[in-house]
């Protein structure tokens, strides 16, 4: 998303510069030589067309909807282009240490999968919560849940983090308790 926002900003900058150049150039040209016609942009034709269209006409409404949607997409792109890193303790005041969410999920997942009896594990990690989804064929859900909770909790607790995320465990088991 960060690269996308940089590309978008470059394109928007180019577009804004183009519009500015056209506005200043055409205005100055029309002022200096009123009878010469437009320089590049055929604005008299556009003006005539816009004067004939009402706000309620389908074309105008469609264009307005398209502009609104495009604007919304830009806003969403800008809002989602954040660092989503997870902070660890700083060894020195001017040093900041972070890790990625994917990295944390991989670490927890590897340790949970290394546990015997766990067949599959899927982990999603955030700064506040680590969600583990584990499945087993042989353990009951209660056994699996407590073990996965312990392993995942230990994995998270071993990291030097200022605020350890909460561990949420969901388990699936083929065996039902009798």
């Amino acid at each position: 998303m960060r690269v996308l926002v940089r590309c978008l900003a470059a394109l928007l900058g180019l577009a804004v510069a183009g519009v500015g150049l056209a506005l200043a150039g055409e205005t100055a040209w029309a002022w200096a030589r009123p009878d010469a016609g437009p320089l590049v942009v055929p604005w008299p034709a556009w003006r005539a067309r816009l004067a004939a269209l009402s706000w309620a006409s389908p074309g105008v409404r469609l264009l307005a909807a398209a502009v609104a949607v495009l604007g919304l997409l830009l806003v969403l792109a800008a809002l989602t282009a954040r660092h989503r890193g997870i902070r660890l303790h700083s060894p020195a005041p001017e040093v900041s240490v972070t890790t990625s969410r994917r990295s944390l999920a991989r670490l927890v997942g590897d340790q949970v999968r290394a546990e015997g009896g766990v067949d599959r594990a899927r982990v999603r990690a955030g700064a506040r919560t680590v969600r583990v989804h584990a499945a087993s064929r042989f353990d009951t859900e209660d056994q699996l849940r407590s073990r996965v909770r312990e392993v995942a909790g230990q994995a998270v607790a071993d990291l030097p983090m200022p605020r350890s995320p909460r561990v949420a465990v969901v388990v699936d088991s083929a065996r039902t308790p009798r």
Binding site: A9, G13, L14, V16, A17, V19, G20, T27
Partner: peptide, 15 residues
């Protein structure tokens, strides 16, 4: 003309 020039400069700066 002024607004056009300002937009031109700002746009180029961002680009």
């Amino acid at each position: 003309v002024l607004v056009g020039l300002v937009l031109l400069v700002l746009g180029l700066a961002v680009l």
